[in-house]
Design a protein around this nucleic acid. Structure first.
Lengths: 218, 218
DNA sequence: CGTTGACTTGAAGGTATTCAAGCTTTGTGG
DNA sequence: CCACAAAGCTTGAATACCTTCAAGTCAACG
């Protein structure tokens, strides 16, 4: 269930010449780089592995997480197309990174003539902001507020006020929000009963009342 | 109670010549700098203020926190002597920073010939690690585990396996751990009854069984 | 078409919160 | 130096919220 034993199904492919340039500039990291494809629930890197490259999501979705000694999982972040992950302090990963669905990940390897700090610093600061925002959610908000905040966060990142795509399972959402998957399910039902959302499909949320949802987050 | 209205009681003093060198190197930030003194519960910076300098705790203790719209507070971190805070993404602070007790804070202003990223990046990555560790605590640990982890964290930072000094109130601890101050109080009593700690004074914890406390964190 | 995994739903139970009262410590003024 | 006030802390009882356990439904896939 925790995908700890997920085998690596990545197939690396060097992209054809014309498509290799990375959209944005990442000084200190290779601009021309391989894209790896990962199936659902594949390990991208594991806790304890050496750090080094950055990872740019071309398409798909990624979760990063830690485990407690007795196996409880805390997902620290989700990453979607266009977002970068993989920077950490020290030379070993403290987290696991896994694909949630079939994904394409561009591996940005550090180059020698380094300006890496210029690339990593804004990413790190942004992640820090997000992590601290998340601390507020986990520390001070109830289940309904957490789920509402999560949906709004996804809506914003998916650039839509009306429709949210959930590539991850209820269990993933639960492990991100510090809840159980049953509670996530119940809260979604409640939001549905409140006419704030509609579940077009299990993993397709339609936002019926954006402001109402927003008010729930306090 | 939230010290929102705490007035600024800082008295700035330029340190005498021989003592001005900052212990460690902070490239891109002024090495010779003023130390400000803050009384208990004084605002160092507020949410919305412009960012810029870094702050090095010379002595005392600092909390940084955010508030929800309805006034719930989440303390994101405590900072003690030798630790640096104040770096954030963007040009405005997302957090409040306040002294917990009478404190001396060295203000490190950015210099022009900048190598600031070299200084800020390791600090940011370290903070990110700490924040993500904290996410695991808030998301997946119960009250006893949270308090135990907190005591061990402080013990490590205070370089003692037997004695922990708590400069902050029970309410501060609660707002850091996502609990109520009553629960913090009850958990400390429980740890006392388990003979894992002793309360020499309200804010002086003696660790009687370090390993036992460690096991509680899972 | 049957099986598997993901999801939903219900009922019981547990943990932390809320509300309330009392205690301790600290600081201040008489 | 003592008395009092105020704030911080402790403790108890009732309650709320989320979890756990269990059963059942739905959807995807071979």
């Amino acid at each position: 269930m925790l995908s700890m034993t997920a085998s690596r199904h990545a197939t690396t492919s060097r992209a054809p010449r014309g498509e290799t340039a990375v959209p944005a500039a990442f000084p200190g990291f290779s601009q021309i780089s391989a894209v790896s494809f990962y199936n659902e629930d594949s390990v991208i890197y594991a806790q304890g592995e050496k750090t080094g490259p950055l990872y740019l999501v071309e398409f798909g979705a990624v979760r990063t997480y830690r485990l407690t000694a007795d196996g409880r999982r805390q997902i620290s972040a989700f990453y979607f197309a266009g977002e970068v992950f993989g920077f950490e302090a020290g030379d070993e990963h403290h987290f696991y990174a896994e694909s949630i669905e079939r994904s394409g990940i561009r591996v940005l390897r550090p180059t020698h003539g380094d300006r890496q700090a210029d690339t990593v610093l804004p990413l790190a600061l942004n992640s820090l902001i997000r992590a601290q925002e998340h601390l507020l959610v986990l520390g001070r908000q109830n289940a309904v507020e957490r789920v509402a905040a999560f949906l709004l966060d996804l809506a914003e990142r998916q650039d839509s006020e009306t429709h949210v795509d959930l590539p991850m399972s209820r269990a993933d959402i639960a492990d991100y929000l510090g809840l159980t998957f049953e509670t996530v399910s119940r809260v979604l039902r409640k939001l549905k009963e409140l006419r704030l959302i509609r579940l077009a499909a299990t993993r397709q949320v339609e936002i019926l009342n954006f402001d109402g949802l927003n008010e729930l987050c306090e």
